[in-house]
Amino acid sequence: MKVFLSADIEGTAGIAHWDEAERTHADYAEFRNLMTAEVVAACEGARAAGASEVLIKDAHDSGRNLILDRLPPYARIMRGWSGHPDGMMFGLSSDFAAAIYTGYHSKAGSEANPLAHTTTLRISRLLLNGEVASEFTINALCAARHGVRSAFLAGDAEICADAGALVPGIRTVPTMEGFGRAALSITPARARDEIREGVEAAISALAAGPTAQLPSLEGPFEVVIEFVNATDAWRVRWYPGAYASGPRAVGFKAKDFFEIQRALRFLTS
């Protein structure tokens, strides 16, 4: 049984500032370590539930964050960015039993995490069919496109709630919640314990019979990207099929969700 793990950092227990997520800053080393520890805990939970392999996508910033020598021997690691529209889910395919997520965070426009964003800080909000979307929204729909259920997520409290609304039955571990520029977090040790136990329970439940539902992929779809700066909106408007959708906003419509992913790959770059 293979499990896919998409690992981000801004929802890692304890994180509160962008300096802690930037590889060029001294604070990064500590939180790179904590990100890795949460990933290892998720791997251990998947292994305890019978996973023979965990494919990890290092999905933060450069895609080169995890401390490789800490990863278990049954794991494989996808580092860097291929340019494929699957993005944070690249490497996933239909032969995986489940997708799990660590270090995930609230969507752009939210006040629930000091580091809330969607893909890039140049975006103020991303809407899918009129609803404000997160990175998890896009990634869970990408997993569903491959026929893979999203079984577990660890991250801030709001993204856990959003995940539960999009994917009924998904198990979550809320690691933190934001208050302006402050964050109230559980300890990293507690987060690791809960992630390990939560992933094991989630994967075991899937093995006994699907619990986490597949979100609907019935089109048509419309994505609208609201940019912070009007010049970004003007620039990406030249993508084939894109159109102005209000001040600083660009829209794109498609019947197939992969076409939405392909458009996002270029509209957000």
Rank of each mutant, 00 (worst) to 15 (best):
G180P: 05
F179A: 14
T175A: 14
A157G: 01
I159L: 05
A163T: 04
A163K: 03
I159A: 03
T172A: 14
S185G: 06
F179S: 13
P220N: 10
A165I: 00
F179E: 14
N229M: 07
I195Y: 04
P240W: 14
A201H: 01
Q213Y: 01
P220W: 12
M176D: 03
G155Y: 07
G169K: 06
F227Q: 01
P188K: 08
R190G: 00
P168H: 08
E222P: 03
P215T: 06
I159G: 02
I225K: 02
G198C: 10
T175D: 09
R171H: 12
R171V: 06
E197G: 14
T187M: 00
P215W: 03
G209W: 09
N229C: 00
P240Q: 07
G198P: 04
R181P: 03
Q213A: 15
V167L: 06
A205V: 04
F221Q: 10
P174H: 03
C160Y: 03
R171T: 08
F179Q: 11
A191I: 04
E222G: 03
R235T: 14
R192H: 02
P240V: 07
N229P: 01
V236C: 12
G178P: 04
G169D: 00
V173K: 06
P168R: 03
G241Y: 12
E158A: 15
A205G: 13
R192M: 13
